[in-house]
Design a protein around this nucleic acid. Structure first.
Lengths: 337, 337
DNA sequence: CTCCGCAGTGAATACGATTTCTCAGGAATT
DNA sequence: AATTCCTGAGAAATCGTATTCACTGCGGAG
C-alpha cells in the first residue's frame, strides 16, 4: 500500500527516477510539462518520500535531540522542561525538523545517551540544558564538531553557541525587589551548587545586596535539591537560625513552594511575616495559596531562539553573535505582599 | 573523525565488510578468531553503526512516535503528559528504541502530523493518546497496517491493541468514596465531552449514584476545558444552582484545583462545606492548599505496558490480550476531609 | 554549414549497513 | 582415494533517494 517509491512514480509518469526526485526538490532545471506530469502522479498516489532513505542519502535525519537529566523526576515534576519542549517542537516543526527526547536517570546513563546519539548520527544536533560549570559534554561535542546549542548557561566558553535567560539579572531583580519592599534579612535557596543557574542567580543576589549596602551573610545561603522536598528541608534549616530571614529568594518555583509550605507549617503568615519569590513563573505559581511571585523566564522565546540557532548551525549558516541573552521579567503576586 | 564505517573497520582488521557486520550482529556463523580481531578494531576506534543506514536497510528507525494534542497548552500545563513521556522513554530505551515527540495546536495540524509520520516512515509505531469516540486516526492507521497502541481508551474496537487505566472504575471509586462520606449532592465536572475519558469517568459516576439509590441530576454535570480556567468557569456555573453540590468529582486535577480556587474565592471552606476529588494524582495535588484527594492513574505502568506492546507489535510478536486495563487507586488527602 | 553551448533528461553511482548468494577448503563418509 | 557435507567468509545485491555525469537535440554565432 504505502510502498510506493520514486521509481514507481517515474514508471507511471513515463520519466526517469532522477526527474521525479528533481521535481520533488523543486529543481529549476526541470521542464514545466514534465513537472506537471510527475506531480499529477505523485498527487494521485499520495506519494511522500521515505525519510529513512533521505536521511542516509543526505546524511541528515532532520531530528533534533534533547536529553532530560534526572529523569523521570525532572520531566514529570518540573513544568519548565515540558514548556521548553513544547516550544522547541513547535519551532523545529516550522523548519521541517522533529524532536527526539531522551531521558537519563544517572550521570552515567546520561553520558552513554549522549555518546550514542552522537555516534549513531541519529540526530543532527543537540540542545543542551542544565549545563554544569565544567561540562564534559561540551568538550566532547566540540571535539567531534557536532552541532549543539547551550540553553541556560550564563558564562559559556567563547565560540560556543548559547542562549540563556539573564540569570544574573533575574537574581538581581528578585533580590532588589525585596529590598525595595523593606527587607534586609533575605535568604537565598539554591539548587545543586554545581549548576551554573544556581550560581548565576546567586551572583545577582549578592550584587543586589552589595549595591544596597547590605552585608552578605553566608548563613542565609543554602543549597538543596530542586524539588518540593528540597525546599522544605532548606526552609527547616533557615528557621533554625537565631535570626531567621524575613524574605526568601528561591532558585525555582518548586523550591519556593516547598519552602512556603514549611513556613506555613510553622505558623508563619505569608506575606506579612515572610515574603517569597521564585523563578520560572511556572503554572504552579497561580495554583498555590498565596500565589507566588516569580521571575519569569521567557521560555517560548528561549526555546525558539535556541532551536533556530541550532538549525542554522546544522545547515551551515552563520550564527552571530554566538551568545544571546533573553531578558527576564518579574511577575508580582501575593507572596510578596 | 567520527566518519568511520564498516569498510574501514574491515580494512584494518583484514576481513570483509560483511564479516564486520556479522560480528556486530552476533552472527554465530563467525569464527572466534575473526570475531576477536574485528572487535579489537571496533573497540579501538570506538565504532558504532550509523543509525541512518541501518534504518534504510532494515526498514525500521527504532523510533516511536507520540503526538501531544492541544499544544503547547497541554504539554506545558498538564503534568500527565510529561510523566507519561518520562516512562515511555525509559521503557523504549530498554528495548533500544527512542521517542519522537510531536505537538499539534489544532485538529487540522494534528491530522497533518500523523499523516506525515505515517507516510515518511519516520517512526516505526505510534502511541495514541486522547482517543476520541470516533477516531479517524484509528481508521487511517488500521487501513495502512501501521503499528499503534491506544493509551487511555476504555472501549476500543476489538482487535485494536490498547492499554487503559480503568476510567469507569475510577469514576465509580471517586463517587462512591464521597457517598460514603455522607454526600448526596455530588457534581461531576468533565473535560471535553467528546473524549472517552470524560465519558467513562462519568459512566462510573452514574453507576455509583445508581448503586446507592441517588437520583442522577443532569444539572450537576458540566463539561469544560481541561485547565485551571476551565475548572473555575465550571464551578461558577455550579454555584449558580439553587442547591449547589456539597462535593465535586472533577475529571482531572487541573479542573479540580481551578474549581477549588473558585469555591474558596466564594468563601466556601474546604473540605468542611464542600469536598473535592480529582484524577491523575499529579504532583499538583500535594502543592495546593488544602491538598487534593485524587484517583491515581498508575502512569508508569500504563506507559511501560503500552510501550512494551507497541514494540511487540512492531517486531511482529503476538500481543494478547488486545485490550489491557490497569487498575486505578484512590489517594486520600485533605480536600475530602 | 559547422561548431559550440546549453537546457533538459536519463543512466549510473553513492550513502552505510544487512543479507543472500557463492564458493573455497577442510572434515567426514563410503 | 574420491565424493559429499559443512563451515566460514568474501562478493554482490539491496534498501530509496539525491546527485553527478554524460548524452541528446536545438538554437545561435561565426
Amino acid at each position: 500500500m504505502a510502498d510506493i517509491k520514486q521509481s514507481e512514480i517515474a514508471r507511471l509518469a513515463g520519466v526517469s527516477q532522477a526527474t521525479v526526485s528533481r521535481v520533488l526538490n523543486n529543481d529549476p532545471q526541470v521542464n514545466e510539462e514534465m513537472r506537471r506530469r510527475v506531480l499529477a502522479v505523485v498527487e494521485m498516489l499520495g506519494y511522500v518520500p521515505d525519510a529513512r532513505a533521505q536521511s542516509l542519502r543526505a546524511q541528515r535525519t532532520r531530528l533534533l535531540g534533547l536529553v532530560i537529566h534526572r529523569a523521570p523526576h525532572a520531566l514529570a515534576y518540573d513544568p519548565f522542561f515540558s514548556a521548553l519542549m513544547a516550544s522547541i517542537i513547535e519551532e523545529a516543526g516550522r523548519h521541517g525538523y522533529h524532536l527526539c527526547v531522551d531521558a537519563a536517570r544517572t550521570p552515567r546513563s546520561q553520558r552513554a545517551i549522549y555518546e550514542e546519539l552522537l555516534r549513531t548520527r541519529r540526530v543532527d544536533g543537540l540542545i543542551l540544558v542544565e549545563s554544569e560549570t565544567r561540562d564534559q559534554r561540551i568538550v566532547r561535542l566540540t571535539e567531534q564538531g557536532f552541532p549543539f546549542v547551550l540553553l541556560g548557561r550564563y558564562d559559556p566558553p567563547d565560540a560556543i553557541c548559547s542562549v540563556d535567560n539573564d540569570n544574573v539579572g533575574a537574581g538581581f531583580m528578585a533580590t532588589e525587589f525585596l529590598i525595595r519592599k523593606g527587607h534586609r534579612r533575605i535568604a537565598y535557596i539554591g539548587g545543586a551548587s554545581g549548576l551554573t543557574v544556581t550560581r548565576d542567580r546567586l551572583q545577582g543576589y549578592r550584587h543586589a545586596l552589595e549595591q544596597h549596602g547590605i552585608a552578605y551573610d553566608p548563613h542565609y545561603v543554602v543549597f538543596t535539591e530542586s524539588s518540593l522536598l528540597g525546599g522544605q528541608r532548606a526552609m527547616e534549616d533557615l528557621l533554625q537560625l537565631p535570626q531567621p530571614p524575613t524574605a526568601v529568594v528561591a532558585m525555582d518555583d518548586l523550591i519556593a513552594v516547598g519552602a512556603m509550605r514549611t513556613a506555613q507549617g510553622h505558623g508563619i503568615r505569608i506575606p506579612d511575616e515572610m515574603a517569597f519569590i521564585g523563578f520560572n513563573d511556572t503554572p504552579l505559581c497561580e495554583m498555590v495559596e498565596p500565589t507566588l511571585t516569580s521571575v519569569a523566564i521567557d521560555i517560548p522565546t528561549l526555546a525558539r531562539v535556541a532551536t533556530e540557532r541550532l538549525i542554522a548551525l546544522i545547515e551551515g549558516r552563520p550564527v552571530e553573535p554566538r551568545r544571546l541573552i533573553v531578558p527576564a521579567q518579574l511577575r508580582e503576586r501575593e507572596s510578596t505582599g
